[in-house]
């Protein structure tokens, strides 16, 4: 710490390269904790709307979108100042969303309304509302932007939305309480986690047929408590890191064989996660313990726990060097 002023005094570093950041939404604190990825410490805490859950940056990282669930709005935040620039109409109780590759349309799950709302972030208007199953949550858009997915927790389905017409073209059953969806392998596969079912369903996107299901088993933890929720892929989509909720573990799944290779102990009720720039570190949000676990991807070991706000929910990476 004491060396820092000296470094800053060197003229060449007059505008020092700020380290990349990990942004964490704290559901029960109405704040976002910003973690410096170099020092692994919380460097800023930003006040946002009520019950922030889903968070994501625009493709150019110029703004942050936050689902302020209990404020019934999506807030648009300047990541430099932490100020709320404006709010977007979101439908009621927005929980989770995904930004379309066009960097313009947000697909938002309205948990209390059984609706997916499509918002144009430029005109700040709702362009479509699509009726889906009860308690929509997981959201994904295919890399080519043609398909959006909403999973509904109580209806237990993945709903396939044609982004051209904004209409459903398929509904596929998954196990109980689907939570999160991701297109992987260049959009050829869709993975959907089912919290209560304890599985990830893998779909062939071309046919919407199920290819396989991935099971999880943590030593010493009853299967009922092994509940896959959020997951993210390592570089090249070779492995998935899967948050297993109240089992307090993250699974590492080989994306080619669909086999689980490792389980890593993290904080309590691990929920979502995101990677740093080169995907060498993953940051998991642990709701009950109120912290973030940093996992070294290569060694598959938890290297640090970072205290954040109450009930951390979402994580979003922000590069600052470019």
């Amino acid at each position: 710490m004491t060396y820092k002023p000296i470094l800053l005094a060197i003229p060449l570093l007059a505008t020092p390269a700020v380290a990349d950041e990990m942004w964490i939404s704290n559901e029960k604190d109405d704040t976002i904790s910003v973690i410096d990825i170099e020092t692994l410490e919380v460097v800023r805490t930003i006040e946002v709307g009520e019950r922030p859950r889903g968070i994501t940056f625009s493709k150019d990282y110029s703004v942050l979108y936050v689902c302020a669930s209990d404020s019934d709005t999506v807030q648009v935040i300047d990541p430099e100042s932490g100020e709320v620039l404006h709010e977007l109409p979101s439908g009621e109780d927005p929980e989770q969303f995904v930004l379309h590759p066009d960097n313009r349309h947000l697909y938002i799950a309205n948990e209390d309304d059984a609706i997916t709302t499509v918002v144009d972030t430029e005109t700040r208007t709702v362009v479509a509302q699509i009726s889906v199953g009860i308690e929509p949550e997981g959201m994904a858009v295919s890399p080519d932007g043609t398909i959006a997915i909403t999973t509904s927790e109580t209806t237990n389905m993945a709903h396939w939305i044609d982004t051209e017409t904004q209409e459903l073209f398929a509904n596929t059953l998954v196990d109980s309480r689907p939570r999160h969806a991701e297109f992987i392998k260049d959009g050829t596969e869709l993975w959907v986690s089912a919290e209560i079912g304890g599985t990830i369903s893998v779909f062939d996107v071309a046919t919407q047929e199920e290819i396989t299901k991935i099971d999880f088993a943590v030593d010493g933890v009853h299967p009922d408590r092994v509940q896959p929720v959020g997951f993210e892929m390592t570089a090249g989509d070779t492995h998935a890191f899967v948050a297993l909720g109240p089992s307090n573990h993250v699974a590492v799944v080989n994306a080619d064989t669909y086999e689980v290779e490792d389980y890593i102990l993290v904080g309590r009720r691990v929920w979502h996660m995101d990677f740093n720039a080169d995907r060498s570190l993953v940051f998991t949000t642990n709701g009950v313990s109120g912290d973030v676990t940093v996992i070294d991807v290569a060694s598959r070991e938890a290297i640090k726990s970072i205290k954040v706000g109450r009930f951390p929910w979402g994580a979003a990476f922000r590069p600052t060097d470019n």
């Binding site: 059984a114 199953g133 009860i134 509904s152 109580t154 209806t155 237990n156 389905m157 709903h159 459903l168 509904n171 059953l173």
Partner: peptide
């Protein structure tokens, strides 16, 4: 109501 929502897709 919950059943109907699921049922309409099936």
């Amino acid at each position: 109501a919950d059943n109907l929502t699921t049922g309409k897709f099936l």
